[in-house]
């Protein structure tokens, strides 16, 4: 019995190794890393990863005649893995273009513009600013002294961290809006965990990208979300915190980058109703079609 088990074990390990080297040598597969907790761009539907990014990359694969394989990893690991280029070729995870990331990887043309949103409990909506035309938003200043939750290494985290810690003396060259206030920052593995932390009274608000924010709110009746604004001279000058998503590849992989850009160019063409294919995909994956 024991012998049988150990033989079995060795067999499994060997198989695994063989399988791995088999796929290693297979140049026809493009491995794309993502973090499948960012609907509608990528999410698990049962055991399958779906989403806008998956559709885009599958079209890229078709164009190049290669197989696309998605791998689910921590969001914070993607940029470094793509940079090294050993375990994967590309990262497609609704990644915002930032200067630091640009130094490490090559980005495609941006394919979606997102706004940072704030999730909070409905009862707490005194913190919002309402304009005459009915738009409702939150400016950074009102978050002073609160405890803010974010997903580690997302732009929500980068912005919030910047506003709390940036000073004129360090790299930022300016004082953050929340600098010197007693504002606290809590980091979570994903947006949902951060949202649950509001329910558990650990934090006051969550700062996260627009679409995941709307998702979470649509499923939790006690939450509300509004866009996050930088405050201007007057209320009319207040402007949303905007960012652009793109797909990243290992530096120098021009063939793949070109193919992605080609696909994106096709998808960005507006139809008769002024809508792009990407926008339609977003609606489909949000179940709003």
């Amino acid at each position: 019995m024991k012998k049988l088990l150990s033989i079995l074990l060795v067999a499994v390990l060997l198989l695994g190794t063989v399988a791995s080297f088999a796929s290693c040598s297979n140049e026809e597969t493009i491995i794309v890393q993502t973090n499948a907790f960012f609907a509608p761009f990528e999410y698990y539907d049962g055991t399958e990863i779906k989403g806008v990014d998956v559709e885009i990359m599958n079209m890229v694969g078709e164009k190049l005649g290669k197989k696309i394989e998605f791998e689910n990893v921590e969001f914070s690991a993607i940029i470094d893995n793509v940079k090294a280029g050993e375990v994967c070729d590309a990262g497609a995870a609704g990644i915002t273009i930032t200067k630091e990331r640009k130094d490490k990887v090559d980005f495609s043309t941006p394919y979606y513009t997102s706004v940072q949103y704030v999730i909070f409990e409905k009862d707490n909506d005194a913190i919002t600013t309402k304009t005459a035309d009915g738009t409702e938003y939150i400016v950074w200043e009102t978050l002073a002294g609160k405890t803010i939750g974010v997903q580690t290494d997302t732009t929500g985290w980068i912005y919030t961290d910047g506003e709390i810690n940036a000073t004129a003396d360090n790299d930022y060259g300016y004082n953050g809006v929340l600098y010197g206030t007693e504002t606290k920052l809590n980091c979570y593995d994903n947006g949902q965990l951060a949202a649950d932390a509001i329910t558990a009274n650990h934090i006051d608000v969550v700062i996260i990208d627009e679409l995941p924010a709307q998702y979470i709110v649509s499923k939790n009746s006690s939450f509300k979300c509004v866009p996050l604004y930088y405050s201007g001279e007057t209320d009319a000058d207040d402007a949303p915190v905007e960012e652009q998503y793109a797909i990243c590849v290992t530096k120098g992989n021009q063939e793949l980058l070109d193919a992605i850009n080609d696909v994106l160019a096709e998808l960005m063409v507006k139809d008769a109703h002024g809508k792009t294919e990407i926008e339609k995909m977003v609606m489909t994956h949000m179940g709003m079609n």
Partner: peptide, 25 residues
């Protein structure tokens, strides 16, 4: 689940994620 594997805990995270039940509890 830390390295992205689909184990029981990951299943809970997925079921609890925004596009599914939108609550981990």
């Amino acid at each position: 689940s830390m390295i992205g594997m689909y184990d029981l805990t990951m299943a809970a995270k997925i079921i609890g994620s925004g596009n599914n039940m939108a609550s981990y509890i």
